[in-house]
Design a protein around this nucleic acid. Structure first.
Length: 658
DNA sequence: GCCGGTTACCTTTTT
DNA sequence: GGTAACCGGC
C-alpha cells in the first residue's frame, strides 16, 4: 500500500464529523460500549459510517489489531480500511478484517489439535468438495441409472443447506428436494461417508470452517474467553446475509466485550440460497438485549425518480421491510423499460446506448450491465468484443474454478499436502494411459506406505505406464529439494502441463493466457499454502480482477456483473438485462413464495445501484425448452408499475436515450 | 478390465 | 461449456 500518511490531527476528524455525516451516521460513529444495530438502506452512507468509526476508534488509541471488521469479501474490507487510512493514518491498515470464512481459518490454523486435525487441513473449494462426493458416490455404487439420485452438485447443495440452515438432512430433502425422497437412505449414508473422508484426509469445506470455529469456541470456554478478549470492538457488515452459525460465532466472540456493531439492510438480503436469513438482523436485538438501533434512511446515491421506482418495487413485497428511503436530489431521468425482439437485439441496444453515453462524456467505468446469472452476458460479451468495447466481468464462473487452473493447482497442492487424494487422482489422471482406476491404485500404494511424492519418483511401474509417468516424475524431481519461490514452482508446473493443455482443450491459447495470469498472481506470495488458501477463500472474482491487472489498469472499462457481485457498488448508469419474467425472476423461483421474495429483493438491489440512469431490458421472444413455453413478458416486479414511474421505451433511439 | 472418445442434456446466485 | 452415461478398442 503506497497510501500517504495524512497529517491530520485527531481533533480535525471530529470537526469533520459535523459536516461529513448526518445525525444518524454520527450517532453510529461515536457509539462506544454495548451492542449496536445499524439498519442502513441502499446508498445511505453505510461504508462511510463504518470507515469513520474505524478511524475514530484507532484515533482514540484502540489498538488496530483488537478491532475486527467482518465483511462479505476481502475486497470490501480492504476498501474500507484504505478509506480509513486516508482519513487518519496507516494504523488503520492494521485492523483485522476479512470474511467470516477467512477469520475462521486464521483461528483454526492455530488450534489444529483441539479440532481433531492433528496434521492440519486443506480447505476445499466447491469443486474439490464435489469431486470428493463424486468419488464416494461411485465407490458406494450410487448412480442415477436405476433410481432418481442427485448429481454431485445437488448433493453438495443439500449438504450445505442442511449445515447452513441448521436443519436435518431429511428436512432439506423432503421439503426442498421431494423428488429425491426415495433416495433419502442412500443420501444419508453418502453424507456420513463424506464427513468421515474429510476427517480422514484432512479436508475442510467452506461450511466446516464455520462449524469448527463455532464448536471450538463452544467447547473451550477458556480459549473463547481469550479470543473474544483479544477483539475489543467487533463490526459486521452486510449482516442481513449472515446465517445462524455466523450469528452464533458472533455471540461467542462477544463473551468478553459486548462491543458488537452490525450493519445491514433486511430488504437487501439475497443469500438465502446459502442459508442466510434476513430475520437474523431482526433477531439481533433479541440475542443482545439492550441493543441500540440506528436507522440510516437518507439516500445519497440516486435521484428521486430512481428511488420512487425502487421504493415501489420493495413496497410490493409480501414481507414489510423496516424503512423507506428519501433523497434530496429531486431532479433526474425516469427509469426506462425497453423490449427487444431477441437476445441479439438486446445486446445491440446495450452496445449502442453505452456508445452514446460514452460520446456524451460518461466514462465506461461509470456504466454497468447487471444480470441475474453469469451466463446471461455471453451474447453481450461477443457483441462488445466485436465492437472493441473493453469490459471487465465480475461474478459467474471464476477462473480458479476452470479445469486448466485446477489441474495446475492440483500439482501444487501435492507439494504441501501429500495425502491429498483428490489432487493425486486429478494429477495422475492427466497422464496418458492412466485413468481413474490406475490413478486410484497408484495413490493407494503411496498413501499406504506414506511415501508421498518421493515414493512416486522411486517406484518402478509396468513399462506401458512407466513410459508415460516419467514426465510427472521428472516434474517433481525438478521441484523437490530445491529452494524455489512460489511462482518459479508454478512456472515449472505450467511448462510440464502445457502439452497436456494443448491436447485436452481446443481453446488452449486462451487458457494458456489464464495460466500466465496465474503465475503472475503467484509472484505476490512467499508461501505455497498461503497462496493456495487465498485461491480458495478469496479467489479473484474475474480473470483480471487482481492487483496484477490493477497495476496496468488505467483503462476505462465497462463493468458486466452478476447482481450478487454488484452488492455495495454503484454506477452513474445501470443497465439490467434479461428483465424477463422467467429469467428474472427465474423459473426455479416461481413455485416457492420465499424464493420469489428473494428474487424481488435481488431486483431491488440491482436497481438501487444506479445514481442517474436506470434501464431495464428484456428480449421478448425467448423459447424455454425446459418448460416448453415462450417467455415474452417483462419481469413481474416491473410489469404493474405505471408509466409515470417506469417509462416504456422503443428501440431505435439509443443515441439519445437520456 | 480399463482408457478415452462420443453423445445427450442442462446451465442461478457465492464463501 | 460442463457432466454423466455409453461404447469401441486395446
Amino acid at each position: 500500500m503506497t497510501e500517504k500518511k495524512t497529517a491530520r490531527s485527531p481533533a480535525a476528524i471530529y470537526q469533520t464529523l459535523e459536516t461529513a455525516l448526518n445525525p444518524a451516521q454520527r450517532e453510529a460513529v461515536i457509539f462506544r460500549e454495548g451492542t449496536l444495530l445499524v439498519i442502513a438502506g441502499a446508498g445511505s452512507g453505510k461504508t462511510r459510517t463504518l470507515t469513520y468509526r474505524v478511524a475514530g476508534l484507532v484515533e482514540e488509541g484502540v489498538s488496530p489489531g483488537s478491532i475486527l471488521l467482518l465483511t462479505f469479501t476481502r475486497k470490501a474490507a480492504m476498501e474500507m480500511l484504505l478509506r480509513a487510512t486516508r482519513l487518519l493514518d496507516d494504523r488503520c491498515g492494521k485492523v483485522s478484517g476479512g470474511t467470516f470464512h477467512s477469520f475462521a481459518n486464521s483461528i483454526l490454523r492455530q488450534h489444529p489439535r483441539e479440532i481433531g486435525f492433528r496434521n492440519g487441513y486443506a480447505v476445499m473449494d466447491r469443486t474439490d468438495a464435489e469431486d470428493l462426493i463424486s468419488l464416494i458416490r461411485k465407490e458406494m455404487g450410487f448412480s442415477s441409472k436405476f433410481e432418481a439420485f442427485p448429481t454431485k452438485k445437488t448433493l453438495m447443495d443439500i449438504f450445505s443447506r442442511s449445515t447452513n440452515k441448521c436443519l436435518a438432512l431429511q428436512d432439506i430433502v423432503y421439503n426442498e428436494y421431494p423428488h429425491f425422497s426415495s433416495a433419502m437412505e442412500s443420501i444419508f449414508r453418502l453424507y456420513r461417508e463424506y464427513k468421515a473422508r474429510k476427517l480422514l484426509h484432512g479436508f475442510m469445506d467452506y461450511d466446516d470452517l464455520l462449524i469448527y470455529l463455532r464448536d471450538l469456541l463452544k467447547a473451550n470456554p477458556n480459549l473463547c474467553e481469550r479470543i473474544s478478549a483479544a477483539y475489543r470492538y467487533v463490526m459486521v457488515d452486510e449482516y442481513q446475509d449472515t446465517n445462524k452459525i455466523q450469528a452464533e460465532i458472533l455471540y461467542l466472540l462477544s463473551m468478553s466485550n459486548k462491543n458488537v456493531m452490525v450493519v445491514g439492510d433486511d430488504s437487501q438480503s439475497i443469500y438465502a440460497f446459502r442459508g442466510a436469513n434476513f430475520k437474523n438482523i431482526m433477531d439481533f436485538p433479541v440475542i443482545f438485549p439492550g441493543t441500540k438501533i440506528v436507522r440510516l434512511e437518507e439516500n445519497y446515491r440516486s435521484t428521486q425518480p430512481i428511488l420512487t421506482l425502487t421504493n415501489e418495487i420493495i413496497d410490493r413485497a409480501a414481507e414489510k421491510y423496516s424503512k423507506r428511503l428519501f433523497t434530496r436530489q429531486k431532479q433526474g431521468n425516469a427509469p426506462l423499460l425497453v423490449d427487444t425482439q431477441d437476445e441479439t437485439e438486446q445486446s445491440r441496444f446495450v452496445v449502442d446506448a453505452v456508445r452514446g453515453l460514452n460520446r456524451r462524456g460518461i466514462p465506461m467505468k461509470d456504466i454497468a450491465v447487471l444480470f441475474r446469472a453469469g451466463f446471461h452476458s455471453f451474447n453481450l460479451e461477443i457483441e462488445l468484443a466485436r465492437e472493441n468495447i473493453s469490459f471487465i466481468k465480475v461474478g459467474g464462473f471464476k477462473f480458479v474454478e476452470s479445469a486448466h487452473i485446477k489441474d495446475v493447482l492440483a500439482h501444487m497442492k501435492l507439494l504441501v499436502h501429500p495425502d491429498d487424494r483428490i489432487s493425486w487422482l486429478r494429477a495422475l489422471s492427466l497422464v496418458e494411459k492412466i485413468g481413474p482406476q490406475k490413478a486410484q491404485k497408484i495413490y493407494q500404494t503411496l498413501s499406504e506406505d506414506g511415501s508421498g511424492i518421493p515414493g512416486l519418483i522411486d517406484k518402478a511401474y509396468p513399462s506401458v505406464i512407466e513410459r508415460h509417468i516419467g514426465g510427472i516424475k521428472r516434474l517433481f524431481l525438478d521441484i523437490l529439494g530445491k529452494d524455489l519461490g512460489v511462482w518459479q514452482i508454478g512456472d515449472i508446473i505450467v511448462k510440464y502441463y502445457s502439452p497436456i493443455l494443448r491436447q485436452k482443450f481446443d481453446d488452449y491459447p486462451k487458457r494458456m493466457k489464464d495460466l500466465e495470469q496465474l503465475v503472475l498472481i503467484m509472484e505476490q506470495y512467499q508461501d505455497i499454502s498461503e497462496f493456495l488458501t487465498d485461491m480458495t477463500l478469496e479467489p479473484p472474482n474475474t480473470a483480471f480482477d487482481n492487483a496484477m491487472a490493477a497495476g496496468r489498469d488505467g483503462e476505462d472499462r465497462l463493468t458486466l456483473s452478476t447482481i450478487h457481485s454488484a452488492k455495495g457498488l454503484e454506477w452513474h448508469t445501470v443497465f439490467i438485462i434479461w428483465a424477463l419474467d422467467g429469467k428474472f425472476p427465474s423459473l426455479y423461483a416461481l413455485a416457492n413464495e420465499e424464493a420469489l421474495e428473494e428474487e424481488r429483493r435481488l431486483m431491488y438491489v440491482a436497481a438501487t445501484r444506479a445514481r442517474e440512469n436506470l434501464v431495464f431490458i428484456f428480449p421478448k421472444n425467448i423459447y424455454d425448452r425446459n418448460e416448453r413455453l415462450v417467455l415474452d413478458q417483462p419481469s413481474r416486479f416491473l410489469a404493474d408499475i405505471n408509466d409515470g414511474v417506469l417509462k416504456k421505451h422503443c428501440t431505435g433511439y439509443e443515441d439519445s436515450l437520456f
